[in-house]
C-alpha cells in the first residue's frame, strides 16, 4: 500500500506523543484535501462538495493537529474518535483518511463507483477509519454519546469528536442526544457544528430557523465555543480549551462558508449536492493552486 507523504508520519508522531504539525503545514494539507474533494466529486459526477469544503479546516485540525490515532491500526482501542454525523461530507473524510494513510490516495478516484470501498455516504464496514455508517442525518451525536460513555466506563482516556451540519440540527434526535450528553456529564465529548448557514432548500433561517443557536446549546447544558471554522488556529485552540472543561460536554460552533476555497461555490446552495463539471473542476483546481 503506497504511503502518502507527510500525513502518515504526522499521525504516527501524534500517536507517539511527538510535536504535531505547524499551522502552515496543516494549511497545505487543507489545500490538498480541497483538491481531492473537487477531483473526487468531479470524477464521480455526483456528491456533496459544498458541505465537504466548508469543514476542511475542522477535519484537518483534528486529523493533523489533535487526534491520537494510528492509520496502521484503525481499531486501536485508545484512539481518539472522529465521527462524521453529516455523512454526506464523506468525500472530505475520505480525503483526510487517505492523506493520513488509512488507504491509498489513488483509491479516492473510485468514490461512488460500483465495488468501491468509498460509498456515497460513510460505511463503517467498508472503509478503514470510518467509525459508524451515517448519511441519515441526526444520528451521529447519539452514537458519540455512547462512545463517550464507554470510554468513561472503560477508564480509557480517548476523546470523542463529532461533526454535525447546522441544517442537521433540525432533527429532534440531535436535541435528545444533546440533553443526554449533559445529563450524563460526558466531558470527553466535543460536538462541532459546521455552521455554514445553508442546507438544501436554502438558508437555515428561511428553511427552519435555528436561532438563538448558541443559547439553545447553553440551555441544554453545553459549554459553547464560537470560532471562525475556516481558521485552523482558532479551531485548534478551541479543541484544546475543551480539554479542560469538566463535567459537561463542549460544542464548537464553527462559523464557516459553504463551498469555502472555491470561489464559484462559496455560499452557493446549488453546490450542496451537485458535483462540478469537468470544466469547473479545472477552474477550481487552478484556483486552489
Amino acid at each position: 500500500m503506497p504511503e502518502s507523504g507527510e500525513g502518515l508520519k504526522a499521525n504516527l508522531n501524534i500517536a507517539s506523543g511527538a510535536k504535531p504539525l505547524s499551522v502552515k503545514d496543516m494549511e497545505a494539507i487543507a489545500r490538498k484535501i480541497r483538491c481531492h474533494i473537487i477531483a473526487m466529486t468531479g470524477k464521480a459526477g455526483s456528491g456533496h462538495p459544498g458541505g465537504s469544503l466548508s469543514a476542511v479546516e475542522i477535519v484537518t485540525a483534528l486529523y493533523f493537529g489533535l487526534l491520537r490515532h494510528n492509520p496502521k491500526d484503525p481499531h486501536w482501542p485508545d484512539r481518539d474518535r472522529f465521527i462524521l454525523s453529516k455523512g454526506h461530507a464523506a468525500p472530505l473524510l475520505y480525503a483526510a483518511l487517505a492523506e493520513c494513510g488509512y488507504f491509498p490516495v489513488e483509491e479516492l478516484s473510485t468514490l461512488r463507483q460500483i465495488n468501491s470501498r468509498l460509498q456515497g455516504h460513510t460505511d463503517r464496514i467498508l472503509t478503514p477509519g470510518v467509525e459508524v455508517s451515517t448519511g441519515s442525518l441526526g444520528q451521529g451525536l447519539s452514537f458519540a454519546v455512547g462512545v463517550a460513555l464507554a470510554g468513561r466506563l472503560n477508564l480509557q482516556a480517548y476523546r470523542v469528536y463529532v461533526l454535525l451540519g447546522d441544517g442537521e440540527c433540525d432533527e429532534g434526535q440531535v436535541w435528545e442526544a444533546a440533553m443526554a450528553a449533559s445529563h450524563f456529564k460526558v466531558d470527553n465529548l466535543v460536538a462541532i457544528v459546521d455552521n455554514n448557514g445553508l442546507q438544501i432548500d436554502g438558508w437555515n433561517r428561511d428553511v427552519m430557523n435555528l436561532e438563538p443557536f448558541n443559547k439553545k446549546w447553553q440551555a441544554f447544558g453545553w459549554q459553547v465555543i464560537d470560532v471562525d471554522g475556516n481558521n485552523l488556529s482558532e479551531l485548534i485552540s478551541a479543541f484544546n480549551q475543551a480539554k479542560s472543561v469538566k463535567g459537561q460536554p463542549t460544542v464548537v460552533i464553527a462559523h464557516t462558508i459553504k463551498g469555502k476555497g472555491v470561489s464559484f461555490m462559496e455560499n452557493k446552495v446549488d453546490f450542496h449536492g451537485t458535483a462540478p463539471t469537468p470544466a469547473e473542476v479545472e477552474i477550481a483546481l487552478k484556483g486552489l493552486e
Binding site: P77, E131, V132, Q139, G140, L141, S142, F143, A144, V145, G146, V147, A148, L149, A150, G151, L153, N154, Q156, G172, Q173, E176, A177, M179, A180, H183, F184
Partner: peptide, 28 residues
C-alpha cells in the same frame, strides 16, 4: 447503577447510545 443508562423517553437517541457503547466493546 453505574452500568445502567436511563435515556428518558427518547428511544431513537437510546439506539445511537447503545451503538456507541457497543463500538467500544460494551454489550448493551
Amino acid at each position: 447503577p453505574g452500568r445502567f443508562f436511563d435515556c428518558g423517553i427518547a428511544e431513537q437517541n437510546m439506539m445511537g447510545i447503545a451503538a456507541g457503547l457497543a463500538a467500544s466493546g460494551k454489550i448493551p
